[in-house]
Simulated assay, not measured.
Amino acid sequence: MFLYMLVFMAYHGIRWIPRSKRLRFQILNAGFTAIVLAPQLYVLARPKSSRYCRQPLLNNLSASVALSFIASGFSVVFTLLDPVPQSLWASYHVFGLMSCGQGLCTTILTLTATACAKTTPELYYMSLVLTVASIFSTGFFTVRGGRWLSDRQPVTDPGTNTERSSGPAVPR
């Protein structure tokens, strides 16, 4: 969910800036994308990363790099388009599900690969960083979703004067 959160932050961050002054933020967004991608590509290119490890951490890092490129595309497109088409939002949310699955796989693989810290240290510690980022972002969206659910206004049925949890009041 870490990559999903980065695109989310880029989209909501640029909406605070007037349209005429968004170029600086877009440049900052490109720089931040490079900061996220550079360590992953560095670890992927290291010869030590191809050593034997019981868990497929290298394959997982390759998937993370691929999703990072997709996330960078989403963040660029979301900062350029106003309004964003519904079909793009739908594909972004599908990407979020993929990012969540990848974060879950990263967490499981990292927790079961403690022996890889000796054979492939850079790869293991990159997986550890991605695991912490994934757990943090999942917590962020869990809290955000909980707040969204608690902030919903209950609807009062005028006939019985009782609260209903969702939907408009239905006339009898």
Rank of each mutant, 00 (worst) to 15 (best):
M1D: 13
Y4P: 01
M5N: 02
F8V: 00
A10G: 03
G13I: 00
G13V: 00
I14R: 00
R15S: 15
W16Q: 15
W16M: 15
I17V: 07
P18E: 07
R19A: 15
K21W: 10
L23A: 15
R24S: 14
I27V: 13
I27S: 09
I27N: 06
A30Y: 10
A30M: 09
L37P: 04
P39V: 05
P39E: 07
P39N: 05
Q40T: 11
L41S: 05
Y42K: 11
Y42M: 14
V43L: 01
V43A: 01
V43Y: 01
L44E: 05
K48P: 06
R54A: 14
L57F: 07
L58P: 06
N59I: 12
N59S: 14
L61F: 04
S62H: 13
S62R: 12
V65W: 06
V65M: 02
L67T: 12
L67K: 04
S68Y: 03
F69Y: 09
A71I: 03
S72C: 08
S72P: 02
F74C: 01
S75T: 08
V76R: 05
T79N: 05
L81W: 02
D82I: 02
V84I: 15
L88I: 15
A90Q: 13
A90K: 13
A90C: 13
S91E: 11
Y92H: 06
Y92F: 14
F95M: 09
F95D: 07
G96D: 01
G96Q: 04
L97A: 09
S99Q: 08
C100K: 10
Q102W: 08
Q102F: 10
G103M: 05
T106I: 15
T106C: 10
T107E: 02
L109T: 02
T112R: 11
T114S: 12
K118Q: 14
T119E: 06
T120G: 03
L123T: 02
M126S: 12
M126H: 13
S127M: 07
S127W: 10
S127C: 11
S127K: 04
L130G: 04
L130W: 13
A133L: 12
A133D: 12
S134I: 03
F136E: 07
S137P: 08
S137N: 01
S137C: 04
G139H: 03
F140T: 02
T142Y: 14
G145R: 06
G145E: 04
W148K: 08
W148V: 11
W148F: 14
S150M: 11
D151N: 07
T160V: 04
T162C: 06
E163K: 09
P168E: 05
V170H: 07
